[in-house]
């Protein structure tokens, strides 16, 4: 087969953070680069580009995945969430506030990926043990914090996400 010399592009339709996009993407473009460069979602960080560090973790149809191990063209017809879907600088969500409160980040490079991993984890495990949190974080590298404050933040967020029992007492 003659190897392509001109970039081969594909038209994709994808929903990112609730917004629908229609874009042309080169077949070989990584999903992480598409989200950062084409959609401007630079909250997503790119670390190792080999699936080891977890910095680029996003939710793909609700499931945490590595954006650097997928092609942008594979996002066609799927719904994605990046860290931009959580709170805003003025109004952090519960998990982000817990990271603020517990000093769960230092340089912040890994944080976006960790927030997305924990977002999915806390949905599935609303009352996790410390051990379960540590296991859940095993796929995200952080070279600053030593993880202690990240674990503390995750546990605080879990506690604060507990639904308040509003059932009227008889």
């Amino acid at each position: 087969m003659q190897r392509e010399t001109m970039p081969e592009t594909h038209l994709i339709q994808t929903t990112v953070n609730g917004q629908a996009y229609e874009r042309h993407t080169e077949a070989r473009q990584l999903l992480s680069d598409f989200l950062r460069h084409d959609l401007g979602l630079s909250g997503l960080h790119v670390g190792c580009e080999q699936g080891a560090c977890g910095a680029c973790t996003i939710l793909f149809d609700g499931q945490p995945v590595r954006a650097c191990l997928m092609l942008a063209v594979q996002a066609d017809g799927h719904a994605l969430l990046t860290v931009e879907s959580l709170g805003t600088p003025d109004k952090l969500n519960v998990l982000q506030s817990a990271f603020w409160e517990k000093h769960g980040l230092q340089c912040g490079y890994c944080t976006a990926g960790i927030l997305m991993t924990l977002t999915a984890f806390l949905q599935d495990n609303p009352t996790p043990t410390e051990h379960a949190v540590r296991t859940a974080l095993s796929g995200n590298l952080c070279r600053c914090t030593g993880y202690q404050n990240i674990v503390a933040a995750a546990l605080l967020a879990a506690e604060q996400m507990q639904p308040v029992d509003s059932t009227p007492q008889p």
Partner: peptide, 25 residues
């Protein structure tokens, strides 16, 4: 750290996928 260019197909039937493999080896 980026893939080299390639041609991309995403067939929607197994038959089409197998035909592509048979053709391109």
């Amino acid at each position: 750290m980026k893939p080299a260019p390639f041609v991309y197909h995403a067939p929607t039937s197994l038959g089409a996928a197998l035909m592509l493999k048979a053709e391109h080896g």
